[in-house]
Structures are given as structure tokens and as C-alpha cells.
């Protein structure tokens, strides 16, 4: 098993499956104080509510003590301390570090100077691998398999890091993708080339409901206002890329809708009560997945 969780690229098919297997074991029995003698540092150089609470809940359910900060404002970083010095210091205090940092590549660098495992809880716009693993856990749990699934990915395919990591992680499992986005937010060429090189079939469309009846998973992402130079264009697209319950009538019974959250209006409220809505359960799966990630990095391979 790997020493850190930095990028989904580092995880092989086997590493992914092992993590999901552990997550399932934690879901069966979510309170397992196996790390009552451990201290976990949760250092967030930029604010994040969901990810930080999810990791800290996971650490607490494992019986570990949590130290750290949720905002770099009150730390020695404001005095000009380098990331290296902060990590050197914290790795002397804690047995594992969960870190979020606004700069791309900060997590990789931290793993090179730390004496304890580092979990990347988001490094700028680069990677957020625990999100990807919980997405995969949600897919596996609802579909019973990760293999040969039809996945429609909708929204901001250009800047959405969860989308890029998802397709890289799913590339181990022979998926078929449909990418649905406005022209401005189309999947970048490097990722289209990546899928072609892996012989993974995909189609692209601008129409939200395209192929919706064939999909096993619909992965929605938020279209962010700041991505548009023209505010009128944003208003138009925001209303076009909004999923509502009337679109779901012909869907496969077991189709599930995922979303990394927070959602704004890309999923209408009337979808929440549908059997297809899975995004809140998905967030809960995050705790089990993060318990699995922590346990594996601290050397526990079976429960």
C-alpha cells in the first residue's frame, strides 16, 4: 500500500478496490476506536466545511485525537513560515496529516518533507483524491460493480477537478462516458486523448437529457458563474443545465445521480425525493471512505 494519498494517479486498480473494501467494512461498523493512541493533524490553509468535517468525523470515529487549524490566518504562515517548515513541525507532533492548501502541487511537496503520511484534502485546482474515492465507493455501492457502467457527466467539464479525477480513476473499469456541457466548458483535449489512449468509448453532447435513459450514473457538477466572461451567457446556461424530476421518467430504475456538492440550481429541489437522488448519501459515504484511507495509511489492512 502507498504511504500517502496525494493524487488519484498514484492509486492502481488494486489500491482503489482495497480502499473501497475497507470503506464497506467501516460502513458496517462505523465506530471503531482502533487509533485511540494516535493524533491526526487536520491543517486547512484555506477554508472548507464539508471536507474538513468529513475527515475530522472519520478521525474521531476511529478514536484518534484531532489537532490543527481551519484557516491559515491565525498561524505562523502569516509570519512568512514556509510550507516545508510547517510540515516538518506538524509531522513531529502528529501521526498523520490531512492537508488542504490553495497552491497546486503543495500536497506532493508536503509528502516529500513529511515523516508521517499526508492525505491531500485538495491542493488548489489540482487534485482532491478522497472525493474521487468516495465517488467510486458510491458508484460501487449503488451499482454493485464498477465495471462496464454507462456514466453521463454533466456541467463544468473544463475546470471541474472532480470530473478529471473521476474519469482517470474509472479508466481502470471499462466505463462508457457521455460528456454533456456547453461549448465553453467542454472536456479539455488532454482528457479526451487520455480516454482514447485507454480505448474508453465516449460521446459528447450539449443536450442535458441526451442518453439519460441509458445511464447507470449521472454525475452532475456545478457551472460556476466566474467561468463566464458574459453574464447573460451564464444565466442562459445555468437554466439549460438544470436537472428536474420530469426528465427522469424513462431512466433505468437503478440509475443514481451523484454530485460533489454544494449544488445550486443544477439539480432542482424536486429531484431530492426521487429514488434516483444519491448526492446526500454520497456525502455520508465520504466518512467511511476517509476512515478507510486513514486506516490503510496507518498500516491497518484488515478489520
Amino acid at each position: 500500500m502507498l504511504k500517502h494519498l496525494i493524487s488519484i494517479h498514484d492509486y492502481s486498480r488494486e489500491d482503489i478496490l482495497k480502499t473501497l473494501e475497507m470503506a464497506a467494512a467501516f460502513e458496517k461498523n462505523p465506530t471503531q476506536p482502533i487509533f485511540s493512541n494516535k493524533v491526526i493533524a487536520s491543517i486547512f490553509f484555506e477554508p472548507s466545511t464539508r471536507t474538513r468535517l468529513s475527515f475530522e468525523t472519520a478521525a474521531n470515529r476511529l478514536g484518534a485525537r484531532v489537532v490543527g487549524f481551519s484557516d491559515a490566518g491565525n498561524t505562523s504562515v502569516t509570519k512568512g513560515e514556509t510550507l516545508k517548515d510547517t510540515i516538518m513541525m506538524v509531522s513531529n507532533y502528529a501521526d498523520l496529516i490531512v492537508m488542504r492548501h490553495p497552491l497546486d502541487g503543495s500536497a506532493r511537496y508536503a509528502s516529500e518533507v513529511s515523516s508521517v503520511p499526508i492525505i491531500n484534502a485538495g491542493d488548489g485546482s489540482n487534485q482532491h483524491p478522497s472525493q474521487t474515492l468516495l465517488d467510486l465507493y458510491s458508484i460501487l455501492k449503488t451499482q454493485g460493480t464498477l465495471n462496464n457502467l454507462k456514466i453521463n457527466v454533466i456541467g463544468d467539464l473544463k475546470y471541474g477537478r472532480t470530473v478529471h479525477s473521476l474519469l482517470q480513476a474509472m479508466s481502470h473499469f471499462s466505463p462508457t462516458f457521455k460528456f454533456i456541457s456547453p461549448n465553453e466548458l467542454r472536456l479539455p483535449q488532454e482528457y479526451r486523448e487520455f480516454l482514447t489512449s485507454k480505448n474508453i468509448p465516449f460521446t459528447e453532447s450539449k443536450l442535458l437529457s441526451d442518453g439519460i435513459n441509458n445511464a447507470d450514473i449521472i454525475y452532475m457538477t456545478r457551472v460556476q458563474k466566474e467561468r463566464f466572461s458574459d453574464p447573460i451567457e451564464y444565466e442562459r446556461i445555468k437554466n439549460v443545465y438544470s436537472l428536474n424530476s420530469s426528465m427522469l421518467q424513462g431512466c433505468k430504475p437503478n440509475m443514481k445521480i451523484l454530485h460533489p456538492l454544494p449544488r445550486v440550481n443544477e439539480i432542482a429541489q424536486d429531484v431530492d425525493s426521487s429514488s434516483h437522488a444519491y448526492y446526500f448519501a454520497q456525502a455520508q459515504n465520504g466518512v467511511y471512505t476517509r476512515m478507510a484511507i486513514i486506516a490503510l495509511l496507518l498500516g491497518i489492512n484488515t478489520l
Binding site: T82, K84, H101, L103
Partner: peptide
């Protein structure tokens, strides 16, 4: 070339 890369902000 990425202005947000850690190597452009810290002595790395």
C-alpha cells in the same frame, strides 16, 4: 508555467 504551482511560490 502554472502561476499557482507551489514551485513558483516557495523555495522548491
Amino acid at each position: 508555467m502554472n502561476p499557482m504551482c507551489i514551485t513558483n511560490h516557495q523555495p522548491i
